[in-house]
Amino acid sequence: MRDFCTASGAANPCPEGCLSVGYTFTPPQCVERFYDYESALISGTVFPDLVIPKGRYGPKESFAV
């Protein structure tokens, strides 16, 4: 079987020593409540649990870039 990395014309996406790919673990979340239609459009989502505005994480959360 041809080794993909040495196949002619195949660009190797990663230079030597690049970081490995990260895997996320996202547990399936079942929803128990929805916003009403008006609130959903205002918040940009129908799921209240996704709306975590600044200050909701906790006093120490920082958004400094």
């Binding site: 399936p28 079942c30 929803v31 929805f34 916003y35 239609y37 008006e38 959903a40 459009l41 940009g44 989502t45 129908v46 799921f47």
Partner: peptide, 20 residues
């Protein structure tokens, strides 16, 4: 405006229902 409100809810639910 009501149509937009309904549209957003349907859009969000469609994405959710794709995985649930």
């Amino acid at each position: 405006l009501r149509l937009q409100q309904l549209g957003l809810t349907m859009d969000d639910l469609r994405e959710y229902l794709d995985t649930h």
